[in-house]
């Protein structure tokens, strides 16, 4: 946590020696007078599942928006190290460029393309990995047709992996809630991410669905060889899934560590008990 004393532009490698695929240094975000993020540091290493927890309004979603290019953080730096090994500074890039680098996300308040079909939603995710342009669309030459068919097949395979392939023709808005969340994950995976950011994926799911989601996240990590950054309120899911946990309150990081360390941390207990006694 004292890493900020060093040269902030050089990405750190963690103590364990594995490269950090995401290295966030001391980012802050102000909305007018409101400081939604206050000098937050966070690292995700290759293959890790990292959880970001904290009471509502702690600034978790704002953190996601800052690292994925939806917002430009007021201060601080965000570095990522895609699969090709080079390290790139992300803040200042457009959201689409961040995704193209290999960071992909889902949204807390589901943002599918509601009147497009389930398959088309996933196909949109392949956009940044394919090339066909206007001329290809107009002439529909064999290369364009082949690419289009490849997009269809890859997207369908992803739908299958989240068990939504029977619904590929339906409009996305007609899916049940839990299925919409899984579709968002499939769509995010279609961009070939090395880091998948999930914003409260289990919100609104029943215990059975939550359990399946947990299995799905583990499976995805294995199959796609990626890291996961997860915002979640369901504590059983967070505790059993995460390698490490970061805890935020009022825009600041108040704790980090393994699930055991964090669950014993007095500040975390206070933050959570405090929240419960209000509720």
């Amino acid at each position: 946590m004292s890493a900020t004393t060093g040269n902030a532009a050089t990405p750190v490698n963690s103590a364990s020696g594995t490269a950090a695929v995401l290295d966030v240094r001391s980012i802050s975000m102000n909305f007018g007078g409101l400081r939604a993020l206050n000098e937050v540091d966070l690292q995700v290493r290759l293959g890790e599942i990292v959880a970001l927890i904290g009471p509502n309004g702690a600034g978790k979603t704002t953190f996601f928006n800052c690292i994925t290019g939806i917002y430009v953080p007021t201060e601080g730096t965000v570095h990522v190290t895609p699969r090709d090994g080079r390290t790139v500074t992300v803040n200042g890039l457009k959201a689409s460029q961040v995704t193209e680098l290999g960071m992909s996300r889902t949204f807390q308040n589901i943002r599918l393309f509601p009147t497009m079909s389930v398959l088309e939603n996933v196909m949109i995710g392949r956009h940044c990995r394919t090339r066909a342009g206007i001329l290809g669309a107009l002439l529909r030459d064999s290369r364009t047709r082949a690419e289009e068919q490849r997009i269809v097949e890859e997207s369908y395979a992803l739908l299958k992996s989240v068990n939504l392939h029977q619904h590929y023709k339906d409009q996305a808005r007609n899916l049940p809630y839990g299925a919409q969340r899984r579709l968002e994950i499939a769509r995010a995976l279609a961009t070939d991410p090395f880091l998948l950011c999930l914003d409260e994926p289990a919100a609104g799911m029943n215990p059975q669905e939550t359990h399946e989601l947990k299995e799905l996240v583990i499976e995805i990590r294995e199959r796609h060889q990626l890291s996961v950054l997860l915002i979640e309120h369901d504590m059983s899911m967070v505790m059993s899934l995460s390698d490490r946990i970061y805890v935020m309150e009022y825009g600041s990081k108040i704790a980090e560590g393994t699930p055991e360390e964090v669950s014993k941390n007095p500040r975390v207990i206070k933050a959570y008990l405090g929240e419960e006694s209000h509720a």
């Binding site: 994925t68 959201a95 992909s104 949109i124 940044c128």
Partner: peptide, 15 residues
């Protein structure tokens, strides 16, 4: 069409 449906999600999907 993605742009029409949701501009934020469209960007976040790399478009």
């Amino acid at each position: 069409q993605a742009l029409r449906e949701d501009e934020i999600a469209c960007q976040a999907m790399g478009i």
